[in-house]
Structure formats: C-alpha cells, structure tokens
Amino acid sequence: MLRGILLTLQIGIISWIIALFAGILIGTFRTFPWRPLRVVGTAYVEIFRNIPLLVQLFFWYYAIPPLVGQWLNRMHNLGYYCAIFGLGIYTASRVAEHVRSGLNTVPTGQRFAGLSTGLSQLQLYRHVIIPYAIRVMIPPLTTEFLTVFKNSALAMTIGVLELTGMADRINARTWHGLESTTGAIAGYLIIGLSIITLMSLVESKLRIPGLIKR
C-alpha cells in the first residue's frame, strides 16, 4: 500500500511538471496577437480536453508502441511512462485554459501602460502580465493539482500498481475489495489535504498587499 502511495505521488508530481510547462506555453500561445499560434493552442486544448483520459492512456499504451517498434513493448515500465506522459499532456490542456483566462484578467490598460514606457512585448509579459496573472491563477491551478493525483488513479488501467492499482491487486488476491479500496480512499484524502495546506501557504506568500483576496 505504501509503495502504491509513493508511485501515485511520483506519477502525479512528474505529470504535473510536464503539464505546467506545456500548459503555460500553450495558454500563452492562445493570448498572442498572432493567429497561427492561437490556432495551434486552441486545437491542442480542444483535442486533449474532449477525449476521455482513459481513452488517451489506452491510445498511448496500446496503439502507439506497435507503430514505434517492438523494443518499446519489451520495455519494463512502459505503463508507468505512458501514464506520466499521457496524464501530463492531458492536464496541460486544462492548465492552458486556466493560464489563458488568467492572462486575460490582466486589464488592457496594464498592457498600454507597459508599452507606453517602451517595454517590448517580451518584457511586457515577463515583468507585468505574468507576475500578475500567476496570482490570479493559483486557486484554479491548486484544484487542478489535486485533480492530477485523482486522475493518476487511471494509471492502474494500463497496469501501473499505484494506490488504486494496489487496492485492486489486494482485492484480486484476498477478496477484501471493500477494505483495500477504503484504504486507498484514505490515502488520497491525505494527499489532498497536504496539497491544500501547502498551496494556501504559497498563496499567502504571494499575496499582493492592498489587493482584495479572491
């Protein structure tokens, strides 16, 4: 069971890192004043958000390896890597949406103000828009961070023995399905509570004096 928790944490955190990087990039694309970038961003979000995660994982795990070559199939941890990759780029599409709406909350006047002092587009994003938008984005991203751990449970369907997979394995061996799933539920609650505590700390640290807390 403890090994399961560890694996859940591992999958959750690594996918989250992937999701953050890709999501911020794609979300920013969608606010750029250049159409092709916006189209790429929108297409990415619509595709990955509108296909069930389970189907995406199956796609990466079952459909892709035969295309790439048999050596992939022999790989020991294929399910593990597929889970991290699949969960990461799926979550990225959701992160991208939060990033986009966060960036859009920055008033146009702020852009004008930055540009009127001679900042370039890049400097504008780096020093004015992103630092402001990040603070707006933290609450929805915290929810998303929690969701990553919950979604990591799906990794069990492609043979990864994380927390839920472990519960299922115990059930198969001992027929104590109710007990083992109840134990897994407790595991997720502990992870969830720790994240909420951690993020409220981060939030209070980044709080802007004088600005109303949302």
Binding site: P107, G109, Q110, F112, A113, G114, H127, V128, P131, Y132, R135, I208, G210, L211
Partner: peptide
C-alpha cells in the same frame, strides 16, 4: 492613464 494602470504587484 485615466485609471492609473499601476502594476498592482
């Protein structure tokens, strides 16, 4: 600007 547009952070 009319609404100052200072950077709040």
């Amino acid at each position: 600007f009319q609404h100052f547009e200072l950077y709040p952070h």
